[in-house]
Simulated scan of single mutants.
Amino acid sequence: MDRSDRRDRWDRWSRYRFRSVWDLDAPPALVYAALEQVEEYPSWWRQVRRVEPVDERTGTAYIRSVLPYEIRVTATERLRDPGRGLLEVALGGDLYGWARWTVRPRGGPGGDHTRALYEQEVEVRHPLMRRLSPPARPVFRLNHALMMRAGRRGLAARLAGPPEAV
């Protein structure tokens, strides 16, 4: 196996696909409104440490979950469609790829329940994470799952609070 084959194999270990489903007891429009206000994420999603706007369509988020490192991700809006319940961004920085929220009504009459689907395809660019990707892949996936679980809980609590909180 030559050097380029080993590098290609290593690169495959640095690619991730994530999918999370958040079932929330709030109307889809309210969930969508909260998810599109990315600058507010740190107030309800503790792993999103801070968000710094770059311009009207771009911001940089600093994220740290269970593992002892912080990643920096710059997100640029690609799609914002409240009618279809879609939010999509291109990602750069320590992660390169894209992320998308799809917000839909969930079951039952009244429209007070929502399913928010989060999808993400990224390649790790953070140097330490990239070096550790092959042996630590299961740990990175668990770290992401724990972060998403905390995000769902944080958003559910925010949505259950007073209306002006959203």
Rank of each mutant, 00 (worst) to 15 (best):
Val54Met: 03
Asp25Gln: 13
Gly97Ile: 04
Pro109Arg: 07
Arg78Thr: 06
Val103Asn: 05
Arg57Ser: 11
Arg9Glu: 08
Arg3Gly: 00
Ala145Pro: 03
Thr76Leu: 06
Pro163Glu: 08
Ala145Ile: 03
Ala90Phe: 02
Arg141Asp: 13
Asp25Ser: 15
Val124Pro: 04
Tyr62Asp: 01
Val166Leu: 15
Val51Glu: 03
Arg158Lys: 15
Gln37Asp: 15
Glu88Ala: 08
Thr76Phe: 04
Arg115Ala: 13
Pro134Trp: 04
Glu40Arg: 15
Arg19Pro: 00
Gln37Cys: 04
Met129Gln: 10
Tyr32Arg: 06
Leu86Pro: 09
Leu87Gly: 05
Ala165Tyr: 01
Ala136Thr: 11
Val124Phe: 05
Met147Arg: 03
Gly93Leu: 04
Val124Ser: 07
Val38Tyr: 10
Val48Asn: 09
Gly108His: 06
Pro109Tyr: 02
Glu123Tyr: 03
Val48Met: 12
Arg130Trp: 12
Ala61Lys: 02
Glu121Gly: 05
Arg84Val: 01
Asp8Asn: 11
Val73Thr: 11
Arg78Trp: 02
Leu79Ile: 14
Arg15Lys: 10
Pro134Tyr: 04
Arg130Pro: 09
Ala116Ile: 02
Met147Pro: 01
Glu77Ile: 12
Val139Ile: 14
Arg49Ser: 02
Arg50Pro: 02
Leu91Trp: 03
Leu128Glu: 02
Pro109Leu: 04
Gly97Trp: 05
Trp45Ile: 03
Arg131Lys: 13
Glu77Tyr: 00
Gly59His: 09
Arg125Ser: 05
Asn143Ala: 07
Ala29Glu: 10
Tyr16Gly: 02
Arg158Thr: 08
Pro109Ile: 00
Gly93Phe: 06
Val31Pro: 00
Leu24Thr: 04
Asp23Gln: 11
Glu88Lys: 07
Tyr32Thr: 04
Pro105Phe: 03
Glu123Thr: 13
Arg9His: 14
Ala157Ser: 14
Arg84Lys: 05
Pro53Thr: 11
Tyr96Asp: 11
Gln37Pro: 00
Phe18Leu: 11
Glu40Ser: 12
Leu67Lys: 03
Arg12Ile: 01
Ala116Tyr: 04
Pro28His: 11
Ala26Pro: 01
Arg106Ala: 15
Val139Trp: 12
Glu39Phe: 00
Val73Arg: 01
Arg3Phe: 12
Val54His: 01
Arg64Lys: 00
Arg7Lys: 08
Ala145Asp: 14
